[in-house]
Design a protein around this nucleic acid. Structure first.
Length: 482
RNA sequence: GACCCCAUGGUCUAGAGGCCUAGGACAUCACCCUUUCAAGGUGGUAACCCGGGUUCGAAUCCCGGUGGGGUCACCA
């Protein structure tokens, strides 16, 4: 049974890199008919940010990376799923290693270590721990028992360690480049590289799928597993996601968390779809695919080796694709939180969403573009006023208002007919009527098809707005905006 | 600096020795459609980092260089 895990540390919100990693774990687990575990890596309690665990879970859910076992799943067999709650296991393992001589207590102070490091660097040597406490006698350790100490793992002095990576093949490390690293801090709590190895083993993790930044640390975890006699899981190190300037993603690059994209109004399933394509591609080149489709096709063998740079433009394009392909009711529900004005029973919300969504890339844009349906324009686009509210416009708007007020039927076809008839009798092009109307009704020069707008807005509002615009023009008092 | 990973258009990628005059998508440019803006349609510009090998033949294999990224904590 395949078991994979995503193990975020609760120090903030879900990053898109983390979201992608979680997604790949999810996809792999589902594809293999295995389990996806969420483990909260709160080893260092001091770095924990309140509410972050919940934020992580929200983020994961919103991109569809749903876990089978985690801190919130009742009765899951491999709990607890918070590392901080597994302390007894880590201590037990450390005790064992100490007893068997695979690890030892180190009494060196941080100051001594710092001095040692400086000395080595002065000689041009890598800053590694010398291992000087490795050979302390049992008696001496006993004598100094009440002194502050850490536990270090005895790392093999010679040979090499090979990481078998599904994506990259065999990655070799000379053992002598590693020093005896700390596995337990002075308060006898574990250090990350120690805890992960134990937790992955205890949770029966078969495949460790994580970011490439973990690759150089993998040998350390292998040393721990070896010392403890654990079977080694398979590894797959995913390429990183970089900012457009090829540097590591950070706040200064704009949005980097799932939460921020949600606030921008990016359609979340589109974000998941986009993330999916960062480092993985469907065998047949399909780009728009649901998570279910991706599950069916997913393979770690098709994961790219190269770091990917995320592209906001393509993300937005993807969001637009979902905007127009999802059902109206789905989009309407997603859009609701972004409506920052009062809705009215008429025009009907879903109908408005439907005519508006085609030109919106995000839900924020959609909400903005729908506004005029519920609020009459208070000012008009300057550029449009210059073009369409000039000579004869007031008169045309008045005629339009008259005709529309008297129109027997109110639907798309009858409206088109009315505009055709009027433009013909006036001897002007239909566009000469359409543009001023759009400006009068919406305040803008761009938007949905005019007849859709008119039909939806309804006779009363249309006539009213036409007359308002007409009056403003006649009074030479047309408020504008740039 | 040491160690590790990586290298196809601006970006995401296809490509597992001949199917490649290097394919697709985003972006970009032009045109078409058109009541505006989008969307859509058609077409265009644009890439195998460099140098050596191996081979009849290399984007694909090997070596070196260069470049980019990552890791070197009593953080995760």
């Amino acid at each position: 049974m395949v078991r994979v895990r995503y193990a975020p540390s609760p120090t903030g919100t879900l990053h898109i890199g983390g979201a992608r990693t979680a997604l790949f774990n999810y996809l792999f687990a589902r594809h293999m008919g295995g389990k996806f575990v969420l483990r909260v890596e709160d080893t260092d309690q001091s770095r924990k940010i309140p509410g972050s665990e919940e934020a992580m879970m929200r983020g994961l859910k919103s991109v569809g990376a749903l876990w089978d076992e985690g801190p919130d799943t009742d009765g899951a067999p491999y709990g607890p799923y918070r590392v901080s709650e597994r302390l007894h296991r880590h201590r037990q393992a450390a005790d064992m290693l100490l007893a068997e001589g695979h690890a030892y207590r180190c009494f060196c102070t941080p100051e001594e270590l710092e001095e040692e490091r400086r000395g080595r660097q002065a000689q041009g040597l890598p800053p590694r721990y010398s291992g000087r406490c490795r050979s302390l006698s049992a008696e001496e350790v006993k004598i100094r028992a009440d002194q502050r100490s850490v536990v270090r793992l005895k790392v093999p002095l010679e040979g090499e360690t090979v990481v078998h990576d599904i994506i990259r093949g065999e990655v070799r490390f000379e053992n002598r480049i590693f020093d005896d690293f700390v596995i337990m801090k002075p308060d006898y709590t574990p250090v990350y590289n120690f805890a992960v190895a134990i937790d992955d083993h205890d949770m029966a993790i078969t495949h460790v799928i994580r970011g490439e930044e973990h690759l150089p640390n993998t040998p350390k975890q292998l040393f721990v597993m070896d010392a403890l006699g654990f079977a080694v899981p398979q590894f797959a190190h995913l390429p990183m996601i970089l900012a457009p300037d090829r540097s590591k993603l950070s706040k200064r690059h704009g949005a980097t968390s799932v939460e921020e994209y949600r606030d921008q109004g990016i359609i979340l399933p589109a974000l998941a779809n986009y993330l999916l394509l960062l480092g993985w591609s469907s065998p047949d080149g399909q780009e728009l695919l649901t998570l279910e489709e991706a599950v069916a096709q997913f393979s770690l063998k098709r994961v790219q080796h190269t770091a990917a740079i995320y592209d906001q433009k393509k993300l937005e394009w993807m969001s637009h694709q979902y905007m127009t392909r999802l059902s109206v009711s789905e989009i309407a529900e997603m859009a609701r939180p972004f409506i920052n004005y009062a809705l009215k029973p008429q025009p009907e919300f879903e109908a408005v969403v439907d005519v508006s969504r085609e030109r919106a890339f995000t839900l924020v844009q959609l909400a903005q573009q729908m506004r005029f349906f519920y609020e009459a324009p208070e000012s008009y686009e300057a550029k449009g006023v210059a073009k369409h509210f000039g000579e004869g416009a007031a008169q045309r708007l008045e005629l339009l208002a008259e005709h529309l007020a008297a129109l027997p039927e109110w639907n798309h076809d009858s409206l088109v007919g009315a505009y055709d008839a009027l433009s013909e009798s006036l001897g002007v092009k239909r566009a000469a009527l359409i543009h001023p109307t759009r400006l009068a009704l919406t305040g803008r020069t761009v938007g949905p098809g005019l007849f859709e707008i008119v039909e939806l807005l309804g006779r009363e509002l249309v006539v009213e707005r036409l007359r308002t615009a007409q009056t403003r023009i006649q009074q030479g008092n047309v408020p504008t905006f740039a």
